[in-house]
Amino acid sequence: MPRRKPTIPERSQLARAAVEYIEHFRRKGENAEPYDLAFRGLGKIDWLHAQSRDGIAAYAARCWANGEQPYDGWTAQEMNEAELDRQAQSQHNRRVALQNSARLRAIRDAD
């Protein structure tokens, strides 16, 4: 299965699972940093993109240290809207990159 970045609702679930993973191993007496525990737990998810794993682990460790729940106060509707916004921004960025690439190719080929 190819690695991919998670959607915002998936990020929420992964961050909550990472906080639970930290809590579980801290109760067992594991003497590791919360970030390291979260990163290790998220590393077991085959499809998770490495950059996303790093960000989610850092967010989960911060939430655990502050005694907060990840994405606390977010409704399912807000998460879905944020995901749609993220997808729209990604499509926009891709279009701009393609336009810039075409422009640079045209300049290169004109020389």
Rank of each mutant, 00 (worst) to 15 (best):
10 E>S: 01
11 R>Y: 00
11 R>M: 12
12 S>K: 11
13 Q>M: 05
15 A>D: 03
15 A>Q: 01
16 R>D: 07
17 A>P: 06
17 A>C: 07
18 A>T: 11
19 V>C: 10
19 V>G: 04
19 V>P: 03
20 E>D: 15
20 E>Q: 13
20 E>K: 14
21 Y>H: 13
21 Y>L: 04
22 I>Q: 04
22 I>A: 02
23 E>K: 13
24 H>C: 10
25 F>C: 05
26 R>Q: 13
26 R>G: 01
27 R>F: 05
28 K>Y: 06
30 E>C: 02
31 N>F: 05
32 A>R: 15
34 P>D: 01
34 P>G: 08
34 P>K: 02
35 Y>L: 06
36 D>Y: 02
36 D>C: 00
38 A>M: 01
39 F>C: 10
40 R>K: 15
40 R>Q: 11
40 R>W: 03
41 G>Q: 12
41 G>N: 08
42 L>V: 11
42 L>H: 02
43 G>P: 00
43 G>I: 07
46 D>Q: 08
46 D>A: 14
47 W>G: 05
47 W>I: 10
48 L>E: 07
49 H>D: 15
50 A>H: 12
53 R>Q: 12
53 R>D: 05
54 D>F: 10
55 G>Q: 07
55 G>Y: 07
56 I>E: 01
56 I>R: 02
56 I>P: 03
56 I>V: 11
56 I>H: 06
59 Y>P: 01
59 Y>A: 12
60 A>G: 03
60 A>W: 04
60 A>M: 03
60 A>D: 10
61 A>L: 07
61 A>N: 04
62 R>P: 00
63 C>I: 03
63 C>A: 15
64 W>A: 09
64 W>L: 05
67 G>N: 08
69 Q>E: 09
69 Q>M: 09
69 Q>Y: 06
70 P>D: 06
71 Y>C: 04
73 G>K: 07
74 W>F: 13
74 W>R: 04
75 T>G: 04
75 T>P: 00
75 T>C: 02
76 A>P: 00
76 A>D: 14
77 Q>P: 00
78 E>L: 06
78 E>I: 06
79 M>T: 04
79 M>I: 06
79 M>G: 01
80 N>W: 08
82 A>Q: 08
82 A>N: 03
83 E>F: 03
85 D>C: 02
85 D>K: 07
86 R>S: 13
87 Q>C: 09
88 A>T: 15
89 Q>E: 15
90 S>E: 15
90 S>K: 11
90 S>Y: 11
91 Q>H: 13
93 N>L: 13
93 N>S: 11
93 N>C: 05
93 N>W: 11
94 R>G: 11
94 R>M: 15
94 R>E: 15
96 V>E: 02
96 V>D: 01
96 V>P: 00
98 L>F: 10
98 L>N: 14
100 N>Q: 15
102 A>R: 11
102 A>P: 01
104 L>D: 14
104 L>M: 13
105 R>E: 13
105 R>Y: 09
106 A>W: 00
109 D>C: 00
110 A>G: 01
111 D>R: 06
